[in-house]
Amino acid sequence: MALALQQLINGLTLGAVYGLIAIGYTMVYGIIGMINFAHGDIYMVSAFIAVTGFTLLAAFGVSSVPFALVVVLIVAVLFTSVYGWAVERLAYRPLRGSTRLAPLISAIGMSIFLQNMVQLTQGARVKPIPPMLTGGIDIYETAEFTVRIAYSQMLIVLVTVGLMIGFSWLITRTSFGRQQRACEQDRTMTALLGINVDRTISLTFMLGAALAAVAGVMVTVYYGVVDFYIGFVAGIKAFTAAVLGGVGSLPGAMLGGLIIGLIEAFWSSYLSAEYKDVATFSILILVLMFRPSGLLGRPEVEKV
């Protein structure tokens, strides 16, 4: 019972991170209909920016953890958005209107490029940072087990909830949100109505990258280690989350993320930690077989 409660907390934390990354996939898929394979690597870039940021602040003698967090979050979001923009501009925009395969290949090329660029410029070693947010609240105690919510977990969940509220407002209430949804429905018509489609798509990529950046900073704080390979697995899992929730649906991405996080947490504590990735991928294949439109997605009708 106590273990299950603890895994619930861990799973929700993990799920929040996956959900944040999954939104980037789902938004990009919604607007230009392609999988942005480089999205996981954008998240990895952000984690590295966070490591550099925290180390730099520590070198300048900043000891206030909340201050450091806010500064690094802002810096990481800004720089990572530029990366998101550049990825779209270099690898995807020239291919708009090309064959279906071309943007996928250039996306995978971008992913390989980013991974190796970070490996070359930042080193292949695992980067550890000293723990910053230690401690937590014990909420339930039994003789042999203490259920604890770590402060870093609370931070992740709170930030994610806050971002979700802000993000929903952005998409449903603002002018940009309307443009974004219009582009999703019909790009040509949107362009005819005088909306700058290129700019909207660029902004979508930047927004997705910004959310991935938050996820990257959070993971750095939570785990305290970063390496150039984390984007690959996190990317696949977040994509699975997006598919599970229904590609194109924003609440679906969050829901899918939470489900994947919970499955992973429970699987690794009750069944086997080694095969937790296999569990996620098997879910992906099962969902694709039996419910390709996902939990909250609409079935896709292909038109000529």
């Binding site: 999988i35 696949i236 994509f239 095969y275 990735d277 296999v278 992906l284 294949i285």
Partner: peptide, 27 residues
Amino acid sequence: PSLRLRGDYLAIVTLGFGEIIRVVLIN
């Protein structure tokens, strides 16, 4: 299962399958 769907899904499923095989072989 994956070929009846859109092409993009195949890409990600094969990516995942590559990892599954590797994880199984290691463990």
